[in-house]
Nucleic acid binder design. Structure first.
Length: 278
DNA sequence: CTGGCTCCCTGAATGC
DNA sequence: TGCATTCAGGGAGCCA
């Protein structure tokens, strides 16, 4: 499930080229195909398909878990949600590691390369917009934003009284964190997932922010995590301390990792290293 | 403001 | 073996 590090990895690969694939920058769209119209959030398919040909990819950026492509005359925004992925491959070939039955959308470039949006569970969405500000307006800060200091983060935690786990998952609070990295960050910080945000002191807030940045950086360094049948290449899964480690010893103290439900989400933690009050 | 729940989806895992 | 049920998960939206 792509979170910030996975989305960032995809972005870097599209920009720099990956394996045999070239950079997507300056590629010109020749034609598009929408294989499942539900993937298109806006506009309607006819408008979308007639607009795209001739557009060039000028930039690829990321906001939270959204990827957005600056085109000649608009923005193409993609959210991968659970199972989405993007592949740049030759129009005549299908990469062996994906199932073409789950292709939802692609665009063919003049160069003979094709950008494929593949999404088994159909939760992912594509938007064609003149302006991204409305779509992004309610998102919380980027975790690596320099303006997000420990003091600011402490204030954000204090003005809410929510459990830490659902708060970290809330994209309006802070952007880009999903289930894997929230569990890893809370373990690194030694904080219980149900601890109430307003109960943290300044040191704990700083430790949590540092831990969020540490695990996200590590994830980016490892080119993301490859779990389930989704995504490929990254190996952050080999560095999980708690995520999907139920019953395995905590790397820090050796106590078995427990799995509970918090706000309907599977949550992994060490009951010794992450006590409810500390 | 907060939590709880549903919906959207598919396929792997589990149960009988 | 084969069928049915359960579960996972990001995010929007609804209700209490």
């Amino acid at each position: 499930m792509p979170e910030l590090p996975e989305v960032e990895t995809i972005r870097q690969r599209l920009i720099k080229g990956f394996e045999q694939s070239p950079s997507i920058l300056n590629q010109r769209v020749r034609s598009c195909q929408l294989l499942w119209s539900g993937s298109l959030a806006t506009p309607n398919p006819q408008t979308f398909l007639s607009f795209m040909p001739g557009q060039e990819i000028l930039a690829v950026n990321r906001r939270a878990k959204f990827l957005y492509f600056s085109l000649s005359d608009a923005y193409l925004v993609v959210h991968l949600r659970m199972s989405g992925d993007l592949y740049l491959e030759k129009q005549t070939e299908t990469a062996p590691y994906r199932n073409p039955d789950h292709d939802r959308f692609w665009m063919d470039f003049d160069s003979g390369w094709r950008l494929v949006f593949n999404d088994m569970r159909k939760f992912g969405r594509v938007w064609l917009l003149n302006d991204t500000s409305k779509l992004f307006s309610k998102l919380g800060p980027e975790p690596f934003d320099e303006k997000l200091t420990a003091e600011v983060f402490y204030g954000m935690l204090r003005e809410r009284s929510r459990q830490l786990k659902p708060l970290l998952l809330d994209q309006h609070f802070i952007a880009g964190i999903g289930n894997i990295y929230s569990d890893e960050a809370l373990h690194k910080a030694g904080l219980h997932p149900t601890r109430v945000s307003s109960s943290l002191n300044g040191d704990e807030a700083k430790k949590l922010l540092d831990s969020i940045r540490f695990v996200l950086s590590k994830g980016i360094d490892q080119k993301g995590a490859s779990i389930d049948w989704v995504y490929r290449g990254g190996d952050f899964q080999n560095y999980f301390q708690v995520y999907q480690q139920e019953g395995n010893p905590c790397p820090r103290c050796g106590h078995p990792i427990e799995k509970i439900k918090v706000a309907q989400r599977g949550t992994h933690f060490c009951p010794v290293c992450q006590r409810r009050s500390s």
